[in-house]
Design a protein around this nucleic acid. Structure first.
Length: 698
DNA sequence: CTTAGGG
DNA sequence: CCCTAAG
């Protein structure tokens, strides 16, 4: 129920990633979402204070139904504040760089209460007994009843967290942590818990997991619901998950590898039933709660395991869906991206998939099937500790390498191409990447803000949570052009051979990557700089969360008010979904398109797609339609005005012929069989082949 | 989901 | 290419 409102804290000022984003002018895609930006608000204090208030309010409001305010709210507020400060102290940068952040990131926000149904007592009981289980169970509904309990638990967990944090950082001001606890009135036992659970032990343990993750980016969660995963500690699990993950990764990693995708298509399909719409939706609403990575994953997993499920899609619709889905999978970005996630940033890379473990609404049943419990691996005993607190668990399966535009002479050798690509990749990786966090598609900049404040809570936002890798501002690899922009440049020198271009590029990249450096697309990017990134996520869950920021689980909502402050929702929503990579039509494609249109006419793009581009997953019928549109336009302008790879005049003539013909005929009406002979009327000059064809056809 | 158009 | 309004 909780609606997210905008969490805009800061201002617009977030810096756009170095990579120049596509022109498209900031699409207004974003309108729907409000940006979350952070500004750097110096006045934490202010925030804190406000936060406190907000929290309270939100809580009450968030309670969807009613407000059961009061309670310990105040405490929360304080807590938050303190936390903020804590976080603050340590420069975020450091954290990221060193990887501290990673740990911290993986907060387990177990949310608030197990569920409303549960009585506090039960809850506690459960906690002790089934701590493990609890982890999985997260409920948003902040039931007022439980508040007390929750709070308590929260506190405990938090404490450890704090300790860790401070410990690591060394800066944490002890005082703060304590005070917070004090406020909360944490029981002593908490200490025991904390110690045991989170701190050191956790840290250590966490590392392992991290490593694992690094290797197997995909990680974990597969189980989702079942939650075997609860026992995260169990190694077996880990391995298990990895397995899956790997597979997944393969699939989803590249947008570019269509071929691969195709092969996998069956699986893929399964994965994303939603089809295009889904796609779009995703993009649009990364945020929307609908978008749950976890579920998808789970789905996938299930399917796979089941093995049996082979989707046979006969209907064309499905067909498309499949296509879409593939695309989605691939892109993500984009995304996902998507993302997912979602998620994409201008800057560029989107964390491929993020899984969140938090389950909302589950009432204690972990068994719940599809639910969301993606992050199986996540929880563990520790969870028990934290149970009440809200920890946000998420796992980043992999990061995609940012899109690169590479321009090289055709005469370039493959080897040099590889090198170039490699350099580009290395430059990016080594140049310093920073991790960006996207919430609802909006980049969240304020590093000091707590997750909660940012709106990342177990409750809702996880759906829309995304991570991105952004190039650090400094470097700009020479050869590469980041993302879209410069395609224009290509004009001058013939860039990539058209047909092969794409493939070439792809292959090149992969090679390059695999080649020299350890880097691998498969999410393993982690190494070098990224490790931190990758580690970020998953591991934490596993062990103790090193830095759990104990935040009271408040509904995201709470934060919103804060957000309200400065920014206009209009700001550039920049990130969100990444635009698809530009893939200029090759002459052969144009030819195929022309051919198809000549036969089918305009207005039947889906059929055109099917007939001529069935295997080109990256060409949607909309793309074809658009291409036709541009072809017509191109044909009508002087050659000098044309840009890009020149299209043979002959084809253009056919385009005009077909265009005029079908326009007159309004061909679309019925399907295929239109017999009329085509006399291409106008386009006098154009006739030539066109006419012939028409007659021939049908 | 498809089309058709505008951006 | 993206986004949307309309079927």
């Amino acid at each position: 129920m909780v609606l997210k409102k905008r969490l805009d804290f800061g201002f617009n000022g977030f810096q756009v990633p170095t990579i120049p984003r596509a022109p498209r002018s900031a699409r207004r895609r974003g309108p729907q979402k409000k940006l979350v930006e952070d500004g750097q608000i110096c006045a934490f204090e202010l925030l804190a204070s406000i936060a406190g208030k907000l929290l309270q309010e939100s809580e009450s409001s968030s309670a969807s139904s009613h407000a059961s305010p009061g309670n310990s709210q105040p405490a929360f507020g304080k807590d938050v504040k303190q936390e903020i400060q804590d976080e603050h102290k340590p420069p975020k940068d450091e954290c990221l760089d060193h990887g501290c952040s990673e740990e911290s990131v993986s907060l387990e926000l177990t949310s608030k209460s197990i569920d409303q149904k549960c009585t506090p007592k039960e809850f506690l009981h459960a906690e002790s007994d089934t701590a493990l289980e609890h982890a999985s169970i997260i409920t948003n509904s902040g039931s007022s009843d439980k508040v007390a309990c929750q709070t308590k638990s929260v506190i405990r967990s938090s404490k450890p967290t704090l300790h860790n944090y401070s410990g690591k950082l060394g800066r944490g001001s002890p005082g703060i942590g304590e005070s917070s606890y004090g406020n909360l009135g944490i029981p002593k036992d908490s200490e025991g818990l904390e110690t045991g659970g989170c701190n050191r032990a956790n840290t250590c343990s966490s590392k392992d997991p991290m490593e694992l993750h690094a290797e197997y980016p995909a990680t974990v969660n597969g189980d989702n619901n079942d939650k075997l995963s609860l026992y995260r500690d169990l190694i077996p699990n880990a391995s298990f998950s990895r397995h899956r993950n790997d597979t997944e990764l393969g699939i989803r990693d590249d947008d570019e590898n269509f071929s691969r995708c195709n092969k996998l298509s069956t699986k893929v399909k399964v994965f994303r039933p939603p089809s295009r719409i889904g796609d779009r939706r995703l993009r649009k609403l990364l945020t929307s709660k609908y978008w749950k990575v976890a579920p998808k994953l789970s789905e996938c997993d299930n399917l796979r395991y089941d093995g049996g499920v082979k989707p046979t899609y006969h209907k064309r619709k499905i067909f498309y869906n499949r296509e879409r889905s593939q695309r989605d999978t691939l892109c993500k970005r984009r995304k996902m991206v998507e993302r997912s996630s979602v998620v994409t940033s201008d800057g560029g890379f989107s964390g491929e998939s993020v899984s969140y473990s938090p389950e909302k609404g589950m009432n204690g049943d972990k068994s719940v099937p599809a639910a969301n419990g993606v992050s199986s691996s996540v929880i563990g005993p520790q969870a028990s500790l934290h149970s009440k607190e809200s920890h946000v668990k998420f796992r980043i399966k992999s990061f995609r390498v940012p899109e690169l535009f590479i321009e090289v002479p055709e005469t370039e050798t493959v080897g040099s191409l590889k090198r170039t690509v490699m350099e580009a990749v290395n430059a990016i990786l080594n140049g310093g990447l920073s991790v960006g966090v996207l919430v609802q598609g909006k980049k969240v900049r304020d590093d000091n803000r707590t997750l909660l404040q940012t709106g990342i809570s177990c409750k809702d936002n996880l759906d829309s949570l995304g991570f991105t890798l952004e190039p650090s501002p400094v470097q700009a690899p020479p050869s590469l052009c980041p993302v879209d922009l410069p395609p224009l440049s290509c004009e001058a020198s013939v860039p990539l051979p058209r047909s092969p271009s794409t493939p070439l590029l792809d292959s090149g990249i992969s090679d390059a990557i695999s080649d020299p450096p350890p880097l691998t697309n498969s999410g393993s990017l982690a190494e070098s700089n990224h490790e931190s990134v990758s580690s970020l996520i998953d591991p934490l869950t596993n062990k103790a969360m090193p830095e759990c920021q104990a935040i009271v689980a408040l509904p995201d909502v709470n934060m919103e008010p804060l957000a309200a402050v400065p920014v206009n929702q209009k700001s550039k929503r920049s990130e969100l979904v990444q635009r698809r990579t530009r893939r200029p039509f090759s002459v052969s494609e144009v030819e195929a398109l022309v051919q198809a249109v000549e036969e089918l006419g305009t207005g039947r793009w889906r059929d055109v797609k099917l007939c001529a581009f069935e295997n080109a997953d990256h060409r949607t019928y909309v793309d074809l339609k658009d291409k036709w549109k541009t072809l017509v336009h191109t044909a009508q302008i002087s050659p000098q005005q044309r840009r890009g790879e020149p299209v043979p005049q002959e084809l253009l003539d056919r385009v005009l012929a077909a265009h005029s013909y079908w326009c007159q005929h309004q061909a679309k009406q019925h399907g295929k069989h239109q017999v009329c002979v085509p006399r291409i009327t106008d386009t006098s000059s154009t006739d030539r082949h066109g006419a012939e064809r028409y007659s021939a056809i049908v």
